[in-house]
C-alpha cells in the first residue's frame, strides 16, 4: 500500500458522504412514493385494477422528465409516485457526481477520468433519446 495517511483520511471522508447520500436519497424517494401512493389509494382505491396483463406503455406524463415534474407539481397522485421513481433513479447518479468531487479533491486524476466516463455513459442514457 502506497497510500499516505492524509490521503486515507480524505478517502474515508468521501466514503462517509457517499454512504449518507445513498441512505437519504432512498429515504426521500420512498417517502415521496408513499405520499403519492396514499393519495392514489384514497382517490382511486375502489376502482378496478388496470389490466396489467396487456402492455400499453405509459403516457407522456409518466415518461418524460418535464411531464413527471409537472404531474407531481399539480398534485396528481400518480405523478407524485413517478417523482419518487425519478428520485430513486437519480440517487445512484448523484452518488457518481459526489465521487467525482471526492476524487477531484484527492487530486486523483486517473479516477476523475474514470468517473467522468461512467457519468458520460449515464448522461447519454438519460438525455440521449435511447428509448427507440
Amino acid at each position: 500500500m502506497k497510500k499516505t495517511v492524509s490521503n486515507k483520511w480524505q478517502d474515508t471522508d468521501v466514503e462517509q458522504i457517499v454512504g449518507q447520500l445513498l441512505r437519504y436519497g432512498v429515504l426521500t424517494a420512498t417517502i415521496v412514493a408513499f405520499i403519492g401512493g396514499a393519495f392514489y389509494i384514497v382517490s382511486n382505491g375502489s376502482a378496478p385494477m388496470p389490466s396489467y396483463h396487456k402492455f400499453t406503455g405509459e403516457g407522456a406524463g409518466f415518461t418524460t422528465y418535464g411531464g413527471i415534474i409537472e404531474g407531481a407539481l399539480s398534485f396528481n397522485a400518480a405523478g407524485i409516485i413517478q417523482l419518487g421513481v425519478l428520485l430513486l433513479i437519480a440517487t445512484p447518479v448523484l452518488r457518481i457526481v459526489f465521487s467525482l468531487v471526492g476524487f477531484a479533491l484527492e487530486k486523483d486524476r486517473l479516477y476523475v477520468c474514470i468517473t467522468l466516463l461512467v457519468l458520460a455513459v449515464i448522461m447519454t442514457s438519460i438525455f440521449g433519446g435511447l428509448k427507440v
Binding site: 412514493a33 408513499f34 403519492g36 401512493g37 392514489y40 385494477m49 388496470p50 396489467y52 400499453t56 406503455g57 405509459e58 403516457g59 409518466f62 415518461t63 397522485a77 400518480a78 405523478g79 409516485i81 413517478q82 419518487g84 421513481v85 428509448k131 427507440v132
Partner: peptide
C-alpha cells in the same frame, strides 16, 4: 419507454 407504472411502482 413507458415500462414504469406508478400503480406498480409504489
Amino acid at each position: 419507454r413507458g415500462y414504469m407504472d406508478p400503480g406498480l411502482a409504489f
